[in-house]
Amino acid sequence: MIWRNIVALLGAWTLVWFCYKGVSSYVWVHDSLLLGNYKLIREYKGLSVDERREMKMGFPFRYMKFVRDQTPDTAVILMPAREVYFPQGEKSDFGDADVSNKLWRLRVLYPRRLVDEPELGVNIYSDSITHVAVVNGWGYDHLGYEVAERLKYTVLPVKR
């Protein structure tokens, strides 16, 4: 019985090997998707959840986290329209992230309330904005004071 098992095992292994070597997507599954990520996980296993999220989401998450850390939970933040995140004809710092979607931003910023510029006057929180998210230099016009050093990305209170 043992030699029959060995023959069958060799046959099964050949099938697996043929699939693995013959179909490029199976190579990707093992080498990149599973083993590649596993090596990465072993290397970075000490990271916090935020750091792991940043690994995957990059700058868009880092910026939202910055806004989150600089504002109180009760803040109402004015944020720009889609065109500001993704200026036409220019490479965006936000890549292909869904940052113009409020729900995407709320995953990081909740329980803060968000008002997108096109929603001013429509959004129930339009009149209670406490902070302005400065994105790509946008936002300084909405502050009630002058800012000497204008950073490309920051978050500032509406009133000094």
């Binding site: 599954v29 093992h30 998707l33 599973l34 083993l35 990520n37 596993y38 996980i41 296993k45 959840v49 792991r52 999220r53 690994m55 995957k56 989401m57 992230a97 869904d98 979607n101 729900l103 995407w104 709320l106 995953r107 909740y110």
Partner: peptide
Amino acid sequence: LEYLNWSKSMFFPTFDRDSVSGFDT
């Protein structure tokens, strides 16, 4: 293979677009 997949699943928090802009949030 499922051990590797489980490790990946549990290590990375939700990051995919449809979940962050929907189900997870």
